[in-house]
């Protein structure tokens, strides 16, 4: 409503001035910060040193970041998974198909823009999609030994699901990924994460001997709970990516 008026010009000038002021203050702070890359920086304090020196022995994970996010600070990761779940729920509440409109009508509008029976797409994705799923599973399962983990693996598997959906259509995807399975997978993964990590923290805090063995041999079953928790994270991330995409696509996914 202020388009082209004097108020609009004033607003633009003021916002640029405010941004410049903000950048100036922040740059001044950066110029007072310690030199980047110095091992003696205050950021590299005893917390990071403890994670690096004792992480492999205490958690069994070679990857210090995984040891941190799935063992020392595992409830933070549970919070992140809940954020993902709640955001999928909010998107569902906002975008669910209105009762007035017929679901088939809404789907027909969006389907018009989707590729259908494209030979090149189908043949290419026939070879590409298994490789994507395999790569995502590998990244997830070896999250405690190599770079990667549940979040990146789950994002890759979710991207593979989207590829499959776009190449072969919703009917074929719903054969293995329908809304009931989405609900079971997501809630099951969240529940297992909560129970397993709750047990682990309970026995750890009370000095009870845990039944879950922890070794740091460096093979895939070595790090106690970290590998199953990585799988839980991957399931939640992949299903959330898929569900949010389906809801933006309109229809076909009412939880």
């Amino acid at each position: 409503m202020f388009k082209g008026t004097r108020i609009q010009t004033l607003y633009n000038i003021l916002s640029i001035a405010f941004t410049m002021l903000l950048i100036g203050i922040l740059l001044y702070t950066v110029s007072e910060m310690p030199v980047m890359g110095d091992p003696l920086n205050p950021a590299n304090n005893e917390v990071a040193v403890h994670y690096l020196t004792n992480g492999a022995r205490e958690t069994g994970a070679r990857n210090a970041v995984t040891a941190m996010i799935l063992d020392y600070r595992a409830f933070d990761t549970l919070g992140e998974l809940c954020v993902l779940f709640v955001s999928a729920c909010s998107v569902y509440i906002l975008l669910r198909v209105d009762a007035g409109k017929k679901e088939e009508e809404v789907e027909a509008i969006d389907r018009r823009y989707e590729p259908r029976n494209d030979v090149i797409l189908n043949k290419a994705f026939l070879f590409l999609v298994p490789a994507v799923f395999l790569f995502g599973t590998y990244i997830t399962l070896t999250g405690h030994l190599s770079p990667g983990g549940g979040f990146s693996g789950g994002a890759i598997i979710g991207a593979g699901l989207l590829l499959y959906l776009n190449a072969f259509g919703l009917e074929k995807t719903e054969r293995f990924m329908h809304r009931i399975r989405y609900r079971r997978l997501n809630c099951g993964a969240l529940g297992f994460y909560f129970l397993a990590k709750g047990y682990s923290f309970f026995v750890g805090a009370n000095d009870i001997k845990s039944v879950i063995p922890i070794t740091n041999r460096g093979n895939i079953l070595s790090a106690g709970l970290i590998m199953p928790l990585n799988v839980c994270v991957a399931i939640v991330v992949a299903t959330t990516v898929y569900a949010v995409y389906l809801m933006f696509r309109k229809g076909g996914f009412n939880i």
Binding site: R62, A64, E80, F151
Partner: peptide, 24 residues
Amino acid sequence: PIVSAGTVDPDLYVNPVPSGLVLT
């Protein structure tokens, strides 16, 4: 920060804490 087995020299690896914060 992918540490090898045995004793670990923390000066050889970058700080893992900001990486976890980026993930969050």
